[in-house]
């Protein structure tokens, strides 16, 4: 007997996707996920733009993780023009990206994932019986937003980060405010880890290629492209290794490495960079690495939030920020490549 399941517009994801499953005699024969939203042609619309307009456009790739799309475009342009970044700019960029990662992880964990595990149709519907959890989620979300707003000017599509630096630096008052918020949220971040560790996940594990960047310290910006158990891929020639494939019916492209699909995100990052986590955060990782259960990605995201918050506290406590003059930029014809980690669901 053949059964077909077709879901139009899967709920609780960012974007539009359809799922079709074909089942024959109780066995899944075919399962396909198609992204059906309209194409926006970012690769083409950035052509012919002035170098300082590109990050404004790429930011709009995604409203949930706009930070990383903007910062990566800036990095690529800076690399092409050999722009040297000051220590302060590097730290502010890192803060911005850490804040953006917290934003995105909170959104995914509490608003998209958690209601499914708890048997509710939405986080809003959960609120009545799980007041503390949802109130924590809202506070963590606003903390992520505050970091991005203070450093980047706005919580969605931040704009103060420009080629070479920032148009403004956070004031002492703003730094003190963020530090206070971060320190008082420590327990909430740890509670989030406990919460996601306490959920019941299906037992499923299948060896997958896990790719992540390996910067000098645990983070999201730069570093070598590594895969669990494989040699590293040089950033500059990344496009020789990763190919975008088109599938009929899907406007989103599928990326493969040597013809094989792979996974990126929090779990691959922790699998590859466990040693770089701070000692306190390491203790939270309670599985044998590398693990290939995709469900662990939720716990990995919750753990990453702790790491992000601690790193924010470290940067904000140890540095003074002042308005810096932007370096002079000499545009020229050149190729620039930057590879960074998007938060990813």
């Amino acid at each position: 007997m053949t059964r077909k399941i077709h879901l139009e517009h899967i709920a609780k994801i960012e974007g539009h996707a359809n799922l079709s499953v074909k089942i024959e005699d109780g066995k899944v024969k075919k399962c396909s996920l198609n992204v059906v939203e309209g194409a926006r042609f970012f690769e083409a619309i950035v052509r012919g733009r002035k170098y300082d307009e590109v990050s404004i456009l790429t930011s709009r790739i995604c409203g949930v993780c706009s930070v990383i799309h903007a910062v990566t475009a800036l990095n690529a342009i800076e690399n092409a023009f050999n722009v040297k970044l000051s220590k302060q700019t590097r730290l502010l960029r890192e803060l911005l990206v850490l804040g953006g990662t917290i934003q995105s992880h909170v959104m995914h964990l509490f608003f998209l994932a958690l209601p499914d595990y708890k048997g509710y149709h939405s986080a809003i519907a959960m609120a009545e019986k799980n007041k503390k959890v949802i109130s924590d989620a809202l506070q963590l979300k606003s903390l992520g937003n505050d970091i991005v707003t203070i450093i980047g000017g706005r919580d969605i599509h931040p704009f103060t980060s420009v080629p070479g630096g920032f148009s403004r630096a956070p004031t002492e008052k703003e730094v003190a405010y963020l530090l206070k918020r971060l320190k008082s949220s420590r327990k909430m971040f740890l509670d989030a880890v406990k919460l996601f560790q306490s959920l019941r996940y299906p037992k499923f594990s299948r060896e997958t290629e896990h790719y992540a960047l390996t910067p000098a310290q645990y983070g999201f910006l730069g570093g070598k492209i590594m895969c669990v158990g494989k040699k590293c891929i040089p950033t500059f020639t990344y496009d020789k290794h990763f190919q975008e494939k088109i599938r009929i019916g899907s406007t989103a492209k599928f990326v493969v490495e040597a013809g094989r699909e792979y996974m990126v995100g929090a779990l691959p990052r922790i699998n590859l960079n466990y040693d770089k986590l701070s000692p306190k955060v390491k203790k939270l990782v309670n599985w044998k690495r590398p693990s290939y259960s995709p469900y662990l990605n939720n716990i990995a995201q919750a753990i990453e939030m702790v790491q992000c918050a601690e790193r924010c506290i470290e940067i904000l406590s140890n540095n003074k920020f002042r308005k810096e003059k932007l370096p002079e930029i000499k545009p020229k014809a050149a190729r620039g490549v930057a590879v960074n980690e998007a938060p990813r669901y």
Binding site: E14, A39, I61, F111, I156
Partner: peptide, 20 residues
């Protein structure tokens, strides 16, 4: 409803504090 977009405007609703 959401047509071709980055979903940022929908998110701006969730980013409301007390007004949400």
């Amino acid at each position: 409803y959401s047509l071709t977009s980055c979903a940022g405007c929908q998110f701006s609703l969730l980013f409301l504090k007390d007004e949400l």
